[in-house]
Every structure is written in structure tokens, then in C-alpha cells.
Design a protein around this nucleic acid. Sequence first.
DNA 1: CGCGCTGTTGAAACTTGTCAAAGTTTGTGG
DNA 2: CCACAAACTTTGACAAGTTTCAACAGCGCG
Lengths: 279, 279
Amino acid sequence: MVALMPRSMDNSRGARVDLDQTLPACDKAVAMPSRTSSRNIDLTQVRAACSTCSLHELCLPAGLDSNEMERIDQLVKVRRRIKRGDYLYRTGASLESLFAVRSGFLKSCVICEDGREQVTAFHMMGEVVGLDAISQEKHACDTIALEDSELCEIPFARLEELTRDIASLQRHFHRIMSREIVRDHNVMLLLGSMRAEERLATFLIGLSQRFASRGYSAQEFHLRMTREEIGSYLGLTLETVSRVFSRFQDEGLIEVNNRHIVIVDVERLRGLVGQHSHS
Amino acid sequence: MVALMPRSMDNSRGARVDLDQTLPACDKAVAMPSRTSSRNIDLTQVRAACSTCSLHELCLPAGLDSNEMERIDQLVKVRRRIKRGDYLYRTGASLESLFAVRSGFLKSCVICEDGREQVTAFHMMGEVVGLDAISQEKHACDTIALEDSELCEIPFARLEELTRDIASLQRHFHRIMSREIVRDHNVMLLLGSMRAEERLATFLIGLSQRFASRGYSAQEFHLRMTREEIGSYLGLTLETVSRVFSRFQDEGLIEVNNRHIVIVDVERLRGLVGQHSHS
DNA sequence: CGCGCTGTTGAAACTTGTCAAAGTTTGTGG
DNA sequence: CCACAAACTTTGACAAGTTTCAACAGCGCG
């Protein structure tokens, strides 16, 4: 319940239309921004502004000067809000835009013809979503909000134009795509050669670091996804996920209360990673 | 033994220095090009020429006009030959160039501190290698030749420049990166939710298609990798790979003789994919 | 306030990994 | 060109980890 709000993060937000002052405190804003739509303003049309966004060092415009930043501001179309459970896009939808996560939490999953589903990523603020769609100009996965979320829409055609003009933007965009490839390879390592306990430990450590680098607590956080979604991501059943969480708790590594996680002993948790199984 | 040579592929090669006429027939050229170095010519310095390369529709310059193709020819530095077992690059090496596979066969693998190893990809002609290095300007995996191979070296800094000039090249480069992401997500699906038989079947079908789209037989081919490497890629042990191959053979789906594979019944093999296990 | 979704836990079954041994192929050096 | 060693592959028996099935508990939402 505590520690869910940023510790040291500059929280200034929207520029053109400064609604944010009227928003509730940050944790609530993240937890239930849809409440604000009761004010009857069409928030889906609020323009984004990278230059004043607290995430710009994590996000697409990382490393740009203020001049270049202004050109991005014009590129990034609108801030789009979606509610928990809504699709940001579906497999097969034609690529119009990439999205940067402003706030909230999402998952992406690929689906087999036979209905089988694999969660390929969980997305949090500052991350860019939709890169898989570039190859066929069609989205190759579903992306769904796990909690009410805000996204900056980045029309892809214009992004490509702009990257042709601004070398540093091009640079960073390439880095973002490459980073996704590296991440995927590490997930392949996890899926291909780790046992259940290692997978969960790796998962928790990764989440913890991502929260930390965004100014949230590394020790204590709220899982936005179900056991089943964790299991899908890690190649395990939901029962196994649940059991391993319980085991970790029994051994004093973490405390679990439903989706509230406290990491008690990071060092021993880290120690678990590296007890290979096969291969 | 048969069917290892391209069926319908234009086999014209190098332009500036036309050595290829003197090379042995294609299958041998692929199997042991190092023999040609006995002629005492430094073949590592032979310039590549996309414009006359039979792979250009698969490779980096796909979709360029002849004008643009010429500019790529100047970009693509040299053709580099490496022998079976040699590293193309190692984890941590700084990014200088990407590579396009001209001929041969390679694997990439990520390595844990604890020595665990995961094969993340097998590369064949027309594919671009090294994309993972862009994110940190350091290679994030090892890439090793599984047979003597030829690669076109593409200095990355100059590629970035050129993509700023040539929109269609930029377009295609983005597509290549995105395609890698989609591929990785499909491997995650495989590793996360398929049982051993499905994984092997998927693997064989994928290889078969890749050979076919390069003009080789889809029914009959030679595996360039060991059972252990297949196992690493598929998240299985080498024993399981071997057993499943045997089972497939017993059931009349394929014929296996060491690394020589004949696909006897593609349809039933396809039918195996979709018998989920868990999740 | 109850219904449904989510999470927990147990017992049994099954898939795959582990260990071991033997057979086969490939490459090397004489 | 042959012989030998090393690397790779196959197969069996057994063990272990994870899934499956099932029942129940808790929480949240309408």
C-alpha cells in the first residue's frame, strides 16, 4: 500500500493543456485515471509534450536537445487513454502508430491458431510498444491494458521521416528496437534453460529493477498481472507460479499478499539465478 | 546427397572480381570454400556487390532500384570468409559492422555468467546478423560459423547514414529489425508452451521453408548443427532431440540419417503442431 | 450479499531430464 | 590411405520437476 508512488521523480506533466494539477496524487492517478473522465473533457485528444514529460530520458526522445525535442512534440500526436482490459491494438490491425507508455501497465501476447497464448512482454511507463508491427505493417500481437493506462501515439510514417532528419533520434530509435531484441534473447534463455524457481526469481528481480529505475520502490510493489499471465510469460502454469511464490515466502525471500510483493532478501533471490537445470 | 543444391536460383556472384566461375559446383562451394584459399589470393578482401548478388531480394537491399543499389555496393565493405567453428564476433566486442550471410550457416548464442548457453538463432544466406549489438554498441551474443561461410560486412555507422538518405533502405532496415522481433516472439511461444514433439516439428517445418525460399529442396536437407545445438535452441536436451527424431522416423514422418533429413509426410508433421501441452 | 474471478494447495500422472553405455561418424596424423 | 581419437548420436533405465485435475478459500465487483 505504501511505496507505490515515485520517490524522486519529477512529476510535471502535460504542457499545452495543463490538467494534471487537478489530478489526484500520483499513485491514484496511475491506479484509476479513468475517474478523471467524469469531468466530461475528451482527454483522448490532449496533446502530449515530450519536452516537459518526466519520462523523456527513458522514452523515445532520450538524448535529444531542446530543439529536436520540439520537433518530436509535434510528431507525438495525442495522449490516448485506455481502460483496464481494453485492447490497444489487435493482431492483424494495420500499423498506424507506435505507442509510448505514459502511465499504466500493459501486456502483449501472441496467439496460435489453436488458441494457445504466450505473453511476450509486460510494458510500463517510458517503454515503446508496437515494434513488431513494422515488419508486415500489421500488428503481430495483441496488446492489452492491465490497468487504466495513458499512451502517447507516435504515427509511424512521420517517425520514420523525422528519424531521417534527426540523427540522434534515428540512433535512439535503432537502440530501442535492438534493446527489444536483446531482451527477447534473454527471455529465450530463461524459457530454454531455467527451472521454475529461477524463472520466477529472474522475473521478480527484473520487475524490481524496472520499478526502481522509474523512481518507485525496488523492494515493494504491486503486480498488475494475474498468476496465469505471469505463468504464460514464464512458460509455467499458474499453479506452479503460485507454488513457487509460496515457497519463496516460506523461505523468507519475499512476502506475498495476493499481488502485493515485498522483496525481503534480494541477495538470496539473486543467488537462486544460476542453479541451472538442464542443457 | 542429392537436393542440396539450389534448384532454380540464379547463381551469378561477385562482380568486381569474378572469382566465382572458378569455384567448384555450388554444393561443394558451400561445403568447403576454404579450399579455394589455396590459390593464395586474399579472398577476405574481395569486394561484395549487391547489385549482382542473387540474394538481393532476400537481403538488406531488397526493394531498392538500381541507382540505390549502387550506393549500397559502396557501403557493403568486403566479403569476409570464416571457417567452421570460427567466431564472427564475441559477446562484448564493440559494434563495427552488421553482417549479411552470403553463404554458409551460423548460430548465435547468449551465455550466462554460470556458463549456461542458449542458442538464439541459426542464420542462413540472405539473413542479417548482429542487430543485437546496436543497443549498447557491443555485441550481446556470440556468433559462430557452423560451416565455412561467407559474409558481407556492413559498417553500421555508414549504414545509418545511408538509411537517412534512402527512404526505401531505411524502410527495409526497420523491417528487418522488426522481423527479428516477431521471430523471437514466435520462439518464445514455442519455448513457453509447446511440448518436445511440437517443438521439433515446428523447427523442421521452419527450416524446410527457409531452404525452400532459397531455392533448395523443402523435403530433403542437411542439418548443419548438432543435436545439442538443436536442443539448446529448442529448450530440450540432446537426448530428447534424438529420441523425438527417432520417434518421428518410426512413425514415418521423416527419415533421419545423422544430419541428413528427409521430410516424408509434411502434412502429418504440420498436424503435430497444435497439440498443446499446458497453459 | 453472493457470484465469479483469482489464488492456494494436494495427490497423481506424465513429460522430460539425468546418468550411463555403446555405436557411429568425422577429422587428423602418420 | 588407413588407423585412431574425438566428437557426435542413439538408446535404456530411472529420477525429478512440472503439469493436470480437483477442491477450496479469498477477494472484489456489481
